[in-house]
């Protein structure tokens, strides 16, 4: 088998590519599966010329939003805004706390933007929400103190919100009618990742089968059949190919487990992935008996790969349902 492996590694550069490509795939996947929204931080400047403590409180109210990079300054960065280095500038007025207490917020905040600003509207809504929450609490404290003058305004302001805050009245649930599975963003990413592994293995298999067809073309199998049988050479190829593709599969699965665990990677699924790999190997092994030309093999590889991927995505996006015939396309097994 070692001699056969040596022969298969005739073009060692190609083999190195076979080993490097999964790493490139993993690298690209890391970027792919990281939330792009989290990566993009929109720079927003919050100007508080008077360095008020209420600004800190407002910022802590808004800290859950990681989409904005909030820069706090005491003056308006006009040039940065003009050059588009910041998305927008919000200027807070003096005595903001008093204004909130008195619910006197009309035209309180100045909003500067440039002609390329896109996402600052979202920040405006968040800032408005944070201020309005506090204004409602202030208004609530005012109302309570109006009727009970001995009540402590600060205490009512601090704890009043929990009485006034509405309970959630909507609950969002997704259900696919007709099929008993639910799709989530996490499982979509996971399925996509497994599809990518299959595509990669499918191409690697085509590359390795090309070697088998080359031996056939050179009449090496004929020579072996004349001696005894070409099966030992074919079985060696099968063993080496299984080892390489399974190895790549396991490597990618382990990496995926490390990378994708937070988005719900299911280790049990990797067992079915191995089954998919095995079936793919067997398809190419059988094809090697039937086919004579490498060109035909590549044509089959690409058409089946393309068609299978198409079926996979049609099922993934609920355009078609899983049926008996979809199982003829290996990637559809991922969605079961």
């Amino acid at each position: 088998m070692v001699i056969v492996l040596k022969s298969m590694m005739k073009k060692w550069t190609s083999f190195v590519m076979v080993l490097i490509l999964p790493l490139l795939l993993i690298f690209s996947l890391i970027n792919f599966f990281d939330s792009t929204v989290d990566k993009v931080e929109v720079p927003i400047v919050l100007v508080d010329a008077y360095e008020q403590t209420i600004t800190d409180k407002l910022l802590s109210d808004m800290k859950e939003s990681e989409s904005f990079d909030i820069i706090r300054t005491t003056s308006i960065p006009k040039y940065a805004l003009e050059r588009g280095e910041v998305e927008a500038v919000f200027v807070l007025p003096n005595n903001l706390k008093e204004k909130i207490k008195q619910a006197d917020l009309e035209n309180a905040i100045q909003w500067y933007r440039n002609d390329r600003s896109l996402f600052d509207g979202l920040f405006k809504e968040q800032l408005a929400s944070a201020i309005m929450t506090r204004a409602i609490r202030g208004e609530a404290a005012n109302v309570v103190q109006h009727y009970q003058s001995e009540a402590d305004w600060e205490e009512i302001y601090s704890y009043g919100l929990k009485y006034l805050e509405p309970e959630p009245i909507f609950q969002m649930q997704f259900e696919t009618i007709g099929e008993k599975f639910s799709a989530t963003a996490e499982s979509d990413s996971f399925h996509l990742f497994r599809w990518m592994i299959w595509i990669y293995i499918w191409i690697v298999l085509a590359y390795l089968t090309k070697i088998l067809l080359k031996w056939k073309e050179l009449e090496i199998f004929n020579r072996l059949n004349a001696i005894s049988s070409s099966m030992p050479l074919r079985l060696s190829w099968l063993g080496i190919t299984s080892f390489i593709t399974m190895g790549i599969g396991v490597l990618l699965t382990i990496c995926a487990y490390i990378i994708l665990q937070p988005v719900g990677f299911d280790l049990e699924a990797s067992v079915s992935d191995l089954l998919m790999t095995l079936c793919s190997i067997m398809i190419f092994f059988i094809l090697s008996f039937v086919l004579k030309k490498k060109e035909t093999m590549w044509a089959i590889t690409f058409s089946y790969g393309f068609l299978s991927s198409l079926i996979f995505f049609l099922i993934q996006f609920n355009i078609i349902n899983i049926s008996w015939w979809t199982f003829l396309f290996i990637p559809s097994w991922i969605l079961v």
Binding site: K10, L218, E219, N222, R223
Partner: peptide
């Protein structure tokens, strides 16, 4: 194995050195 067949094509595995080539068929 009474038959030795030398085909029209050069039916040898190109990636191997000659010694390995002969050893492989010798073992087979």
């Amino acid at each position: 194995n009474p038959i030795g067949y030398v085909p029209q094509q050069i039916a040898i595995m190109e990636g191997l050195i000659v010694r390995d080539q002969l050893t492989y068929y010798q073992k087979l």
